[in-house]
């Protein structure tokens, strides 16, 4: 009995169980297709693929920590990307290079992030000031943002950028794909914000118990608005990444990422009712999903089976996380948390 104890302690937190899943998936895939899964080429291709939806999952996580949700992440990212793309195609000659090009790229990036933050501000005001349930506010605003992107482009893709646009999503720095670097930096920043700043502490406090947070004299309206602005900014960055990888911007890119982002956040152990969630969990969830995707791809399993397996994984993890009587992590709730 006593020699079982350390094991259940180790697996008591959702993150530990998720790490186990990620490792198991990795090992199984390496065994099943040894030559290809464990190759540098595969590692690089994975590193180019996942950051875009992983950043959206970060945005989702931040809002979920307050007990909310942001269903407008994809709408926001497409609107920001379309805005930046329109800016670039309207004012910039595609053959431009050198300093001028970088200046314009900088302007486009800043503009896109501003659009994302404005979209987030809009969500924040709806949720905080008007008291809409986040799921409806962002469902509606997501439609509005997507609709604006459609209206701005007439529904077609915007393309014809200067060469520098493709750099962000397709190049490497010191051999490491830039999207991956971007994601790591953002994950570290968000993790730092959530665990080491009073803003992060307030987010978790509000998510754990909104009423208590109100009685503790938190400025809840301001807090919520800041959270949704942050989520909007992250979505805009994901949008820029998608735009750079596709070398074009369109109103309906990445529409399958919305549910994927929710799925990853929940898989990563973020409590959709708020209050609990760690960035490391989200990162592990992203890795598990990407290992599964790439591995199954190599085994020539169809894309649709991937969807099936994601769903099974999500429900399996939820059952394990909630059913304390189900085996590991049984009566460990009190000792294992925090």
């Amino acid at each position: 009995m006593s020699n079982l104890k350390p094991k259940s302690n180790l697996l008591a937190s959702p993150e530990a169980r998720l790490a186990l899943i990620a490792i198991v998936v990795f090992v199984v895939m390496s065994i099943l297709s040894p030559g290809r899964f464990l190759s540098v080429a595969n590692a690089t291709s994975m590193a180019f693929q996942f950051p875009e939806f992983a950043i959206l999952a970060l945005a989702m996580t931040v809002t979920m920590l307050t007990g909310g949700i942001d269903l407008s992440v994809v709408g926001t990212s497409n609107l920001s990307a379309v805005f930046a793309a329109t800016l670039l195609t309207q004012f910039v000659d595609p053959s431009l290079t050198g300093g001028d090009m970088f200046m314009w790229l900088g302007i486009a990036v800043v503009a896109a992030i501003c659009v994302g933050m404005l979209a987030g501000l809009f969500n924040g005001i709806l949720v905080a000031i008007f008291g809409l349930p986040p799921i409806l506010a962002t469902l509606g605003s997501g439609l509005v943002f997507t609709g604006l992107a459609v209206a701005l482009t007439g529904g077609s893709a915007v393309m014809g950028f200067p060469v520098g646009v493709a750099w962000l999503g397709n190049e490497r720095l010191f051999g490491i794909p830039i999207p991956l670097i971007l994601f790591v930096i953002l994950a570290l920043i968000i993790s730092f914000v959530l665990t080491r700043t009073s803003f992060g502490f307030k987010i978790r406090m509000y998510g754990a118990n909104p009423l208590a947070a109100e009685f503790a004299a938190l400025d809840i309206d301001k807090l919520l608005i800041k959270v949704y602005v942050l989520s909007g900014a992250l979505s805009a960055i994901a949008g820029l990444l998608i735009m750079s990888r596709a070398n074009s911007a369109k109103a309906d890119y990445g529409s399958s990422y919305l549910l994927l982002a929710v799925l990853i956040a929940v898989l990563g152990g973020v409590n959709p009712y708020g209050g609990y969630g760690k960035i490391i969990g989200v990162v592990l969830a992203v890795l598990s999903m990407q290992f599964l995707s790439s591995g199954l791809n190599m085994l020539q399993v169809s894309n649709f089976a991937r969807e099936l397996i994601w769903g099974v994984l999500l429900i399996f993890v939820m059952i394990v996380n909630t059913q304390k009587s189900f085996g590991f992590g049984a009566k460990k709730k009190s000792s294992a948390t925090t």
Binding site: L259, V262, L263, V266, P272, Y273, V301, S302, F304, A305, R306, E307, L308, I309, W310, G311, V312, L314, I315, M318, I319, T322, Q323
Partner: peptide
């Protein structure tokens, strides 16, 4: 079964089964 017996949040369960059912049909 997942919602009534396991007590999982309805949004999460149906999000999961959405991809399971669709993936199953297509595969």
């Amino acid at each position: 079964v997942f919602i009534a017996w396991f007590g999982l949040p309805t949004l999460i369960v149906t999000l999961g089964t959405l991809s399971i059912y669709r993936g199953f049909v297509l595969t």
